[in-house]
Design a protein around this nucleic acid. Structure first.
Length: 412
DNA sequence: GGTACACCTCATGT
DNA sequence: AACATGAGGTGTA
């Protein structure tokens, strides 16, 4: 049963300022599900949020539980952030906060482009990538799941956490949507064995330990206290965030250092939590992917036995901070996204179209090519041949072949 | 301090 | 069909 208030509203936003199709899929959040064509939904702050976007507007809808039950883990946004206008539940305030809509993104892109030729070259096809302001606890657990893992599996693991340990908020198309579980919910003794059974592998122990540590020892207030004071968990901050240095501001360095005490949290995961959950925009998480970018485009580690040591990690992060400044983590995320194979169609767009044309031409029977991104580096190509005359079974033959992206341009 | 190596699981390539 | 590799790493020796 759909809860209260499910009309669509809209907010004027250009695609250069926010592109949800990129931002919600680039691996900073693992919660968003496709609820319809060009529609993304997730349970957040005790409601189901859905988004669509066109060239001029972000369209949104909030569905609340039919019962006026107790609010979930996160506090209701303070009234100071309410832009008024029939927004008594402050969904608009939540959206402004979550999408981090305050900064002028086009201006930031210009700034990063001005100081970096590589950014200038790569960024134009990946405009509108915004750093989300996610809940710190959710970001922490999500990125603990990310070690030695890929986006599609991380997403399904996070989905499982919500499904088994998070409060049910509502349904869309009979699909249940759960909010993210609290630390307490994940601190119960059965969690580790259960997650193990759910296929979390060695991360089951990390999650169980970290949940207990936060729930019983450090407290959620400790985690939220690591936030950038200019960008607290919700609302507008007042306190200054400190002076920028090579290694980042003091608050960032402290947050990163404290997070390292948690099980399953190394430098990379800590930096992801800092950037995506705590509002420290200078945090530059260096994973194998960024390491490759640093080698390929910024001449790092070209030596013989170059490996991503701790020293190398810091050197790369510092280099990017010096290059792009206070929002280095943001700029880095744009380049990271540009390198994601799930988006590689944007790089090879022209080639793809040519291939299709050729294939259609060479098959006079009239065939349809449907490329869909199945996983990060593969696409599933369906060739659907249709009978010349229509009968009840239109699709006579469906061939599926899975091919590597990189090889495709040469194949055929 | 820097370097191997194991670690759960899943998908893909050989 | 078994085996290796890598996936947005971390903990340990």
């Amino acid at each position: 049963m759909a809860g209260r208030a499910s009309e669509w509203h809209k907010l004027p936003v250009s695609l250069k300022e926010l592109c949800i199709n990129t931002t919600l899929r680039c691996g900073q959040s693992f919660r968003w599900r496709k609820s319809a064509e060009d529609e993304w939904s997730a349970a957040l702050h005790g409601r189901i949020l859905s988004f669509r976007q066109d060239a001029s507007h972000l369209h949104y809808r909030a569905i609340f539980p039919s019962t006026n039950a107790t609010p979930t883990s996160l506090p209701t946004p303070p009234a100071s952030n309410v832009p008024s206008e029939s927004d008594d539940d402050n969904t608009l305030g939540l959206i402004n906060h979550y999408f981090n809509l305050e900064p002028n993104l086009a201006q930031l892109y210009d700034q990063w482009a001005a100081s970096d030729a590589n950014f200038r070259k790569k960024a134009p096809k990946f405009t509108g990538v915004r750093i989300l302001r996610q809940d710190p606890w959710e970001a922490l657990i999500g990125f603990i799941c990310s070690s030695n893992n890929n986006i599609s599996r991380i997403s399904s693991m996070v989905h499982n956490l919500c499904k088994h340990y998070g409060p049910l908020i509502g349904h869309i198309n009979d699909e249940p949507y759960h909010d993210f579980p609290t630390p307490e919910a994940l601190a119960v003794p059965e969690v580790e064995a259960h997650l193990m059974k759910l296929g979390f592998g060695y991360r089951a122990k990390y999650i169980a330990k970290t949940a207990r540590m936060v729930a019983e020892e450090k407290g959620l207030a400790w985690l939220e206290g690591l936030c950038n004071p200019e960008s607290p968990v919700f609302g507008k901050g007042t306190a200054p965030a400190g002076e920028m240095e090579d290694g980042g501001r003091e608050g960032y360095r402290k947050a990163q250092a404290e997070l390292l005490a948690l099980h399953g949290v190394g430098p990379k995961v800590a930096d992801c939590v800092c950037l995506f959950g705590l509002g420290w925009s200078e945090s530059v998480p260096v994973d194998t992917h960024v390491w490759q970018i640093a080698q390929r485009d910024y001449k790092f580690g070209k030596g013989k036995h170059a490996s991503l040591t701790q020293a190398m990690y810091v050197a790369i992060a510092n280099h990017f901070r010096k290059l792009w400044g206070k929002e280095a983590g943001w700029a880095h995320s744009v380049l990271f996204t540009a390198d994601l194979k799930a988006f590689s169609d944007r790089i090879t767009a022209k080639v793809e179209i040519k291939e299709e044309e050729v294939l259609v031409k060479t098959e006079p029977g009239g065939s349809l090519l449907v490329d869909e991104v199945v996983k990060k580096d593969t696409i599933k190509r369906k060739r659907v041949k249709k009978e010349p005359e229509a009968n009840e079974q239109q699709v006579v033959e469906i061939k599926e072949e899975v091919v590597r992206r990189s090889k495709r341009s040469r194949a055929r």
